[in-house]
Design a protein around this nucleic acid. Sequence first.
DNA 1: TTGTATGCGTTATCAT
DNA 2: ATGATAACGCATACAA
Lengths: 342, 342
Amino acid sequence: MKRNIYDVARNMNLSPGTISKILNGKGNVSTKTRERVLKYVEEIGFTPNSSARTLKSKKSLTIGIVFSDISNFGLEHPFFSSVLQQFKNYIEIFGYEIVFIVNRVGNYDLSYLKWCLVKNVDGVLIVTGNINKPNIIELVNSEIPTVSTDIKMDDLYSVMSDDFMGMKLGLEFALKLGLRKLACVSGPLTSRAFYERYLAFKEILEENNLTFKEKYFRVSPTYGFTGGYNATKELLEEVKEAPDFIFALSDEIAYGVIRALEDSGLKVPEDVSVIGYDDVSFSKHFTPALTTIRQYKKEIGETAAKRLLALIDGTVKPEKQVELIPVSLVIRDSTKKVNLKQ
Amino acid sequence: MKRNIYDVARNMNLSPGTISKILNGKGNVSTKTRERVLKYVEEIGFTPNSSARTLKSKKSLTIGIVFSDISNFGLEHPFFSSVLQQFKNYIEIFGYEIVFIVNRVGNYDLSYLKWCLVKNVDGVLIVTGNINKPNIIELVNSEIPTVSTDIKMDDLYSVMSDDFMGMKLGLEFALKLGLRKLACVSGPLTSRAFYERYLAFKEILEENNLTFKEKYFRVSPTYGFTGGYNATKELLEEVKEAPDFIFALSDEIAYGVIRALEDSGLKVPEDVSVIGYDDVSFSKHFTPALTTIRQYKKEIGETAAKRLLALIDGTVKPEKQVELIPVSLVIRDSTKKVNLKQ
DNA sequence: TTGTATGCGTTATCAT
DNA sequence: ATGATAACGCATACAA
């Protein structure tokens, strides 16, 4: 049942070396024997042992994934798990597979980099991570080809949504609706995405001669519904005049924002318009259906995959260090209708 | 930077063999040298190479995962990805990690079993799979310890929700509400879960002297919203009298069912009560908040992990081939209120 | 208690 | 064009 390259060699009356050459398409072998061996290998369904291969060749056809480094969410995270799935789909076409980087192998505790070295991963994808963690810094500064779909660092290739564009699309839409009391509920600013969206929010407000008010900007300590809910409740309590627009920096936060608004007697979108961020699959089923900024997870995942594979091959160096994927505004029912009479 | 067991041996004035023994806690080594070596290893952060270890020992500390075998959903699937996350968390405590079983390694196409052999996985978790696929059959019949959180087969240990209990909880609640025109919208019956829930639906109806009507039972060809929506539309069209209760066999299907009902002028829960299945995190935010059967993903994932680890250790054989995890009924707003006056 | 030698299944270099 | 052989890094049976 379980064969090795010697068995194949013996049955073919050849040496193991020759079999190896054929299997790897290297060296000189006559077309005749090559075909003969290939046929036999196909027939008996032989595949060279993976561990022996990576032991000898230092290549594992494996990509290490840094995933929930930043927080304690897991595979359930609607946005990042989707990006990962797309990435996975793409690299599998080329015979690669993903493995999750953790802090130990067997009984040994190790840093991310050590882990990668011990495992001989060919490359690393940081789906989401914290730029201040030693583990991440060490990894990014290493020789291992690395791409991120979240964080930005020197010498790190990144593929991510154009967050400035997203904020601009949302805010300009709000302005077009005639809204001027613009608030924002963010997730934790330790996340690169939230932080940059916050910066953009501020900047775009100023571009439009609107003053950024601290009281209209709230940070939820968590990523989800409850954080958005509480932050909004607090906002409404501490403010004389309720906003007429809230930019929630994630869809899940938006759900919380909207319920808090409603529980405070405010109608969405009549009194307050709300825009989310992500366009998670559920948002179209929320009531009111959520107006939101759509991120293109498939494009992010695939582009990251292409970049990383190119880095591993060492063929083409990507020109841009940071590749921004455009986003779009999806208008649904959580924002006021555009006044067509104007 | 990158050391091996020889480097350690040289620096310690010992032989590689001794180092290995110490690292693996085997053989006789004096406490003194053991401690000395362990300290040094700790100091320089040495970890034995993973491939070499696997190659020699045939153990990889790796669990192969069969995931989206049955359909083309991916990591985004709210229920299964959550089960997997819980499983992953648990096995990582013991130094194991997960790898996704695919159909190839590098340029070679292989069956699941072959893949596992080539990779030397220590065990397999079938998160979801199709009992009729040769890949699955071959795998389950192999020597590799395997546990499933979805399918049931001879010689396969399974850990899953008690679907009969779920259906019973839902239906008895409906009966208590005085509902008698009981319909059901299922996902594809090729899925074990849907099929068993369907069987239970039928059986429990009969137990209660209600006749199972074909027209009141619809199968959606897909897992999600659209399938539930269309199936419900069809149901309403083909039936003289609308049901007063619909058991949707997944939460996502339930969303579709409810919207279809509403679009047909029926009110939920006033005209029709709807119960979902899963209690996905979003269901509490749906409007109306969904009454549903809660599955305990954490318990499923962890129990499966324990079973599999036990199987791998070969210590205790689980007594029960199929371990059923209880479910519970979560009453929210998509079902009629209980009449307290009675 | 410690060391030596061999094998795990490949790949790759160097002969032939 | 093909074969012999060493090396990858570790584990283990056996010898010392």
